[in-house]
Amino acid sequence: MQLSIFLGATLLGSGAILMFGRSASEFASPVQLTSGDAALAAKVRYPSPRLLDVDGDGTREMVVGDLPGFVRVAKPAGGDDLLAWGELAPLKTDGRELKFNNW
């Protein structure tokens, strides 16, 4: 089974909701997040996305955990477009890929 990441509203760290031009009382239709020409995390099993500044540069990256316990990160593709992202790459610590055992 393959799932892709869709975004209708994102809960930000401050508790505010980013609604893509809608009021807080209504949700916008879901939109597909992309990585280049493909869907972001199209081949990730049960993706769980979160926007976090993992490298301390002041820009939030898309961090995606999955069912097997792998954690991947993608940088914004540029500009103010929160729908376009770079390629997902393993999140590493001490040179090793970060993984949480889920089983």
Rank of each mutant, 00 (worst) to 15 (best):
P30C: 08
A28C: 11
V63P: 01
S4Q: 09
S23I: 13
S4G: 14
Q2K: 11
P49W: 01
L83Q: 14
P90N: 05
R72Q: 06
A89S: 10
A41N: 04
Q32N: 14
G65A: 06
F70W: 05
M62K: 03
F20D: 08
V71Q: 01
A74N: 02
L40N: 01
A9G: 12
D94F: 11
L88M: 07
T10W: 12
A74L: 04
T10C: 09
G78I: 06
E26Q: 14
R96P: 01
S35A: 11
L83A: 12
L51T: 03
F6E: 03
A9H: 13
S4N: 10
D80Q: 15
P68H: 01
L7F: 14
G36M: 07
L40H: 03
V73S: 00
R50M: 08
F100K: 09
P49E: 01
V73D: 02
K75S: 08
D66I: 04
D53I: 12
F6W: 14
L83I: 09
A89Y: 00
G69D: 03
M1P: 03
G56F: 14
K99A: 04
G21I: 13
I5E: 00
L7R: 14
I17Q: 08
F100N: 10
S48T: 02
D53F: 11
L82Q: 12
G58T: 13
G58M: 13
F70L: 05
P90I: 00
D66E: 05
G15E: 08
I17V: 15
R60K: 15
A84Y: 04
R22N: 07
G58H: 13
M19I: 05
G65D: 00
G79E: 09
A84R: 09
F20G: 03
I17P: 01
G56W: 15
K43H: 06
P49D: 02
G65H: 03
F6A: 00
A39G: 07
W103Y: 07
A38C: 08
P76D: 10
Q2C: 08
F6K: 04
Y46A: 00
G69V: 00
P30D: 09
E26C: 09
A16N: 14
T59R: 15
E61H: 06
E61A: 05
N102E: 08
G79D: 10
S14M: 12
K99Y: 02
K99C: 02
L40V: 05
R96E: 12
G58V: 12
F27D: 15
G78M: 12
G58P: 14
D37R: 10
S14W: 11
T34I: 04
L83G: 09
V64E: 03
G21A: 09
K92L: 10
L67S: 04
L12A: 13
M19N: 08
L12V: 09
A41I: 01
